[in-house]
Design a protein around this nucleic acid. Structure first.
Lengths: 167, 167
DNA sequence: CAGTTTACGTCAGTCTTGTTGACATTCCAA
DNA sequence: TTGGAATGTCAACAAGACTGACGTAAACTG
């Protein structure tokens, strides 16, 4: 294929159709593994992956507003609200009316919420840690570089902002 | 944290909780980008991501049985069947009763099915190609190494088998 | 101050895609 | 040949996404 070679004749094997196909399949299979462990825990709690995501990002950005969470998660407010309502009812998330802008709701995890978030994240991180350790630091750096390049620009902004906020 | 340093004192920065957390967020945001382009095409066709997956893997392994597809996709046969039925009704997939074992159905893409698969895959690959090109060959190798290590063993077997089947 | 915009919540309805359970057909082996 | 295992289909249901419409309160703006 024309894509197998660059104009300079330099081999770009990682850009052949077959390599791209394998990359896509790797994403598919790996994402399944990535979510498998927390999903198992959630199944017994009448919660789903959506609850995990909410807990994760509230934990990572305490005091975030509903609107901000919305744009990070990329779902509609109706969809998020269903999840958030159950989490608040169950005492895992606290919603505080904004001090300066009373229209806003600032979201925090309660002690119970932190506990569940930790449980879910620990399960997920065990697998990630093993994968990172096995692949080695250079592979991990490449992994992150490719993923970052694959994001939509707006998602990349969120990603980088979250990184900065935590150092 | 105890995890920031290996017993030998060698820095393992990529295994800190914060790095693992960033890895998880990268997976989340990148997967959204990964599926965004084909999803846009599918939205106008009354098909969903499940249809794309079926087309993708039938394309990659023509003549595969329903059961084999089931274990690759990791869903129930009832779930797959709904998707498969619409694809067959719409003339994108052909189902042939097995010659030796009449319980089995062998699946093939029709010309129309191949055309849609190509359209979807091209959209997805354009983004992957850009990401791969931007990140460079070493990053791509690391990307794949980490993803492979992240898979469930059974999924990794499927992944490797698909690779072998195509060279 | 009046009108508009923003932020949030909710009700109702739909769609995709996952799940169980029940059932028919086919193959194979005791 | 009969019973179990494998394969696939039909029916019903649930989670979680979506749109659209509406309501309320607060903030902003001319």
């Amino acid at each position: 294929m024309a894509d197998g070679q660059s104009p300079q004749g330099e081999t770009l094997l990682y850009l052949t159709d077959e390599q791209l196909r394998q990359g896509a399949e790797a994403m598919f299979f790996a994402y399944r593994g990535f979510t498998a462990d927390p999903d198992r825990i959630l199944a017994g709690l009448s919660y789903g992956r959506a609850h995990h995501r909410a807990l994760h990002f509230i934990h990572g950005a305490p005091g975030t507003t509903v609107n901000n969470l919305l744009s990070i998660l990329g779902v509609t407010k109706q969809s998020l609200n269903r999840v958030l309502r159950t989490l608040i009812e169950d005492g895992l998330v606290e919603s505080q009316v904004g001090r300066t802008d009373k229209r806003e709701r600032h979201l925090y995890l309660t002690a119970d919420g932190e506990a569940l978030e930790k449980q879910l994240t620990d399960a997920q991180r065990a697998r990630m840690r093993a994968a990172f350790r096995q692949a080695g630091p250079e592979a991990v750096a490449g992994f992150r570089r490719v993923l970052e390049a694959m994001m939509d620009p707006e998602m990349r902004r969120h990603y980088q902002k979250l990184r900065e906020g935590r150092g």
